[in-house]
Design a protein around this nucleic acid. Structure first.
Lengths: 355, 355
DNA sequence: CTGAAAGCGCTTACAG
DNA sequence: CTGAAAGCGCTTACAG
């Protein structure tokens, strides 16, 4: 009723007409299903190429009433791991956008302090029928075991926030850590005189497991090497993360180095340093740390923290889900490595920041 | 064949069944079309609410074979206005994503140096049948005349990159200029000693028309006021934008102020300042300017420019089209003011920057 | 190996 | 004011 015959057709119908076959057969070759003679297959493929046929995704999703299941495995959000609220947020945003297209997202939260919880969840996930996985590979060996199984089952997976060495992931979406340290050094450098002094502080119970902290430190140091800057770098590892312990470590450290002009904290625990500086009424020193978290922002506003480095945690979650969607539904290629921008947050721009 | 009767229905069919009407009638009340008795309308609306019915957008777009036409009116890209390549890029990206859903985007490019070209294009646009407009309102009065007509025709429009005073736009997507100047001052401040000196340089043929440059300047000055910083601020307006003219202006300026520790250039012409500093072999001075442009990046890499402020021009274009799409197709509300983040680009992070 | 038919969840004329 | 039917561009059994 709508189309008069003068209107040019397109889509499977037109292909079928030209090839003198039914649309069912066209569908078969489009999806590379078996049961088509080589000859008709060739004819149809030629026509598809000639017409530059683009399937209508909406119609496809509508007709194939299939739902796709994505599993998400990320750390649970807690006071200590507030960071993970942001990726989760992005994941849920993506979920809302593509629910329309028949995507279901099942979320699994592991305890960052409990390897076993991670392992248990991977087992649970593998028991269900899933089409794709979004993974934060916090525990390296355990993650490798999991991704290996995904490989075998031909389930694509996306890594966020930290990478796994040479895995066959669909893609990695997250920071390039070395450069964030390098950038921090540039910023710190504005406050450091020649022959001045800077402190690097790692605050983590698992400094040795958490190689990502070390990558930032390397980047930080590299900057000064590259620029032949003469300065003293003092590094301190603090392995007790409760505030009281951190404070007492800092007390000693700062007493020994009253001349430090800048402090670089390699993660979001910069908040403890800021708090200590405030409470001890320490003289102003340039302070750089990580992550757009509520407590950090408070000290940023107060001027105790000068710069926060942030790498769009929410977008990591969002992009992660969308990468699966693009690959599985739209059948398009996705970038193998999507490095997040290294954002500099200050008192003046934090209110406009978008995670 | 697919659904056995045990399966719960949903959608218009189920609503129709419950209301004891046909799906045609349900469709009428969903779209608020006339020709339904108050009584059945009420019944149907109640059921919709009860079921929390969410229409299937895919099915809707597929069935209603209607195309929506968006018009885009932005400056043409030229050597002088390379900036606009980025928004255009974002617009085209959005276009590709929503073409599927029957959206057509028609682009109109005006000459930033020619008001009349802008006016002519607005006339041309209004002659065609359009459902939404994306506008860069570079010429204020002319833009106001255009948006007024859009209001009358009930055509929603989105503003990008600069705003119009109290207009009934669907939304504004772009920078908040005052704060970008304010932030620049914070960065500059690291290089400025007490009682030091900083230069503000406006380079534009139309400084007075381009109030946005002045907003940045205000923000820049405000920072020092707010922080009771004692310093000398020297401001220079350069109205000849070719390099030779800028260079001769700078020569005088820098001779008179050899003690300047920082320079703030209120737009992307920071490139000319960087070039002059390099060519004249001027001593190192902290230089801040605007925009992620090829030439700027070259000087950033060389260390002549310290910071570039950038506000995601590509995303402005992308979000602008998507705002129209969300409003017109998905019928969801969009944020009235979407201020872009104020990004700080340095030598160390530019390679990870996403426009 | 191939085709005809029903269906996905909507919208659009048309008829009454 | 309302309903029945055709159609959007695909996919999915089923039949042969």
């Amino acid at each position: 009723m709508k189309k008069d015959s003068a209107v040019e057709l397109s889509g499977v119908k037109e292909i079928a007409r030209r090839a003198n076959v039914s649309i069912g057969t066209v569908d078969r070759v489009i999806h590379n299903r078996s049961g088509v003679s080589e000859k008709t297959k060739q004819i149809i493929q030629d026509i598809i190429k000639e017409l530059d046929y683009q399937p209508n995704i909406m119609a496809r999703r509508l007709a194939s009433n299939k739902v796709l299941n994505f599993a998400v495995l990320i750390p649970a959000v807690s006071d200590e791991t507030e960071f993970w609220a942001a990726p989760l947020n992005g994941i849920e945003q993506a979920e809302n956008e593509i629910r329309q297209y028949g995507i279901k997202v099942e979320k699994y939260y592991f305890d960052l302090n409990d390897k076993q919880s991670f392992v248990n969840l991977t087992k649970q996930i593998l028991k269900t029928a899933i089409d794709g996985v979004l993974l934060a590979p916090s525990f390296i060996d355990e993650s490798l075991a999991f991704t290996k199984q995904c490989d075998q089952l031909k389930i694509p997976y996306v890594l966020i926030n930290s990478d796994l060495p040479k895995q066959d992931s669909l893609c990695y979406i997250g920071p390039e850590l070395f450069h964030s340290g390098y950038l921090s050094a540039h910023l710190a450098n504005y406050a450091i005189k020649d022959n001045g002094k800077v402190l690097i502080i790692n605050i983590s119970r698992e400094i040795d497991n958490h190689h990502h902290l070390l990558r930032k430190e390397e980047g930080f140091r590299a900057y000064f090497d590259d620029h032949d800057k003469k300065l003293t770098i003092v590094k301190d590892d603090i392995r007790q993360t409760d505030y009281a312990s951190v404070a007492s470590s800092l007390k000693e450290l700062l007493k020994a180095h009253t001349d430090a002009e800048a402090i670089f904290v390699t993660n979001s625990r910069v908040v403890s340093v800021a708090r200590y500086l405030q409470e001890s009424d320490h003289q102003k020193v340039l302070l750089i740390g990580y992550d757009y978290l509520k407590d950090n922002l408070a000290y940023l506003k107060d001027g105790l923290i000068d710069f926060l480095i942030c790498q769009k945690p929410q977008e990591q979650g969002y992009k992660g889900i969308m990468a699966l969607y693009q690959n599985l539904v739209l059948k398009v290629d996705v970038e193998k490595n999507y490095f997040m921008p290294i954002d500099i947050i200050t008192k003046e721009n934090y209110q406009f920041y978008r995670n």
